[in-house]
Amino acid sequence: MLSVKNSSDGQGGSPVDHTGKRTDEWSECLTLIAQHEDRAAFTRLFRHFAPLMKAFALSGSTLSANHADELVQEVMLKVWQKAGAFNADKAAASTWIYTIARNCRTDLYRRLQKFDTPLSAEDVSESQDSEEAFMLLHQKRSRDRIRTLIKDLPPEQAHILTKVYMAGKTHSEVAADLDLPLGTVKSRVRLALQKLEIQLER
């Protein structure tokens, strides 16, 4: 079994890389925050991501502008506090940040509905535990592919995906919202995923 060598612990500063490590701007920011508590890097990250988080908060429909701001604050603070757990070998910075925003939004919904639960959204979310080089490479390829292919999705499929993800609605809720049969929603999602080459790996 292959495993990635010297991945998770410190690689001594230099962001350069010849082994395929991600060195995009946002992962650099996260690294600077983790290693140097760099507020300038945090501010850059904030200016890019906070407006996206606000859009994300508001597209969930039921949140007020105040709650949306509260959510942005909470997520950005978490990004700062958890930056040390970010591992550029395992995840894209944007995916890591999106996941935090998604979990915080879910928890906020549940708090507002007075849900009394011992589980947070993070407790029941996916763990990125794999250390296998093959898997990581595979994941990276698929990430690049999604980024390219998503531009060519037919509008109605892109629209459904946005409903599913950004509005955070179940397939049945999307169906009710758009006044479409559930089967139509499911098959549009399925077609879209097929085009993006996302499939069950078994």
């Binding site: 998604r102 996916e126 994941q139 698929s142 995906l161 993800y165 995923l193």
Partner: peptide, 10 residues
């Protein structure tokens, strides 16, 4: 992969 898709839409 589905989380990466979410990040793209985000």
């Amino acid at each position: 992969q589905l989380a990466d898709l979410g990040a793209n839409l985000f």
